[in-house]
């Protein structure tokens, strides 16, 4: 430490350079919401991707739960009747694997969709992010903005997807099994599977937004001065 530094520290103490405080989360949520509303078109596109993937997942899971419940709990007469009509078949291992692959792919495609749209969002908003940093925004706020934006899309997409998939599974079940399904809807099983879908939807959107949000937070305030990408 040389003399100059000591004087400096002294001054610094007197001047009281403060430490920037974090903007309340409610403000971050509000700004993220405004961002979504303005870019509604693209936002809906991403959301519809999530809806499709999650509804596929929840349809597969729930209809499987319904079929298993009926096979296990319906009375002998009903099961024989359904088997005779070819309506109650236990899927082979091969078919199950195939379905798993398809669900996995659907989730992956929707994950890439989220990632892509958030990356696009970050690159087209470089000046906005730089400006916010010039005005005193901390890295954490920038991360929050992008995560919240993605989470809104995820929340809407996942909920709608679950509703769609579940109603499809229930509708198809009642058409196929008819009266055999009365009183045999596996409520607990379905709630469990809905939970799995919620988790999948959340992970999908949060992980899809994590890298873009990190990129945005690392952006220097000086990028506000840049004229083009």
């Amino acid at each position: 430490m040389n003399k100059e530094n000591t004087i400096l520290d002294d001054n610094r103490h007197r001047k009281k350079i403060g430490r920037q405080v974090q903007l309340p989360v409610s403000n971050a949520i509000k700004i993220a919401w405004q961002n979504i509303r303005v870019r509604l078109g693209r936002s809906l596109l991403v959301t519809s991707g999530i809806i499709l993937a999650i509804s596929f997942l929840s349809y597969i899971l729930c209809s499987d739960a319904i079929a298993k419940n009926i096979a296990g709990k319906a009375n002998q007469h009903q099961i024989e009747q359904l088997q005779r009509d070819g309506k109650l078949t236990i899927n082979s291992e091969d078919a199950k694997t195939q379905t798993r692959w398809m669900v996995g792919l659907a989730l992956l495609v929707s994950f890439v969709g989220v990632l892509n749209s958030m990356l696009l969002s970050v690159t087209e908003r470089f000046r906005e992010i730089g400006t916010m940093k010039c005005l005193g925004a901390l890295d954490k706020l920038v991360v929050e903005l992008f995560l919240f934006e993605s989470m809104f899309q995820g929340l809407v997409g996942t909920s709608l997807g679950i509703i769609m998939g579940l109603s499809l599974a229930l509708g198809e079940g009642s058409l196929t099994y008819g009266s055999a399904m009365t009183g045999l809807v596996p409520v607990v099983g379905i709630i469990k599977r809905v939970g799995i879908c919620l988790l999948a939807g959340t992970l999908l959107t949060v992980f899809g937004a994590l890298y873009p949000a990190w990129l945005a937070a690392r952006m220097e305030p000086i990028s506000a001065m840049r004229l083009e990408v």
């Binding site: 610094r12 430490r19 920037q20 940093k133 005193g136 901390l138």
Partner: peptide, 16 residues
Amino acid sequence: VDIASLDAFELAWLRC
């Protein structure tokens, strides 16, 4: 205040 001596939080405060 020498800006090189400031950390990220202090710099953000300064800009703000």
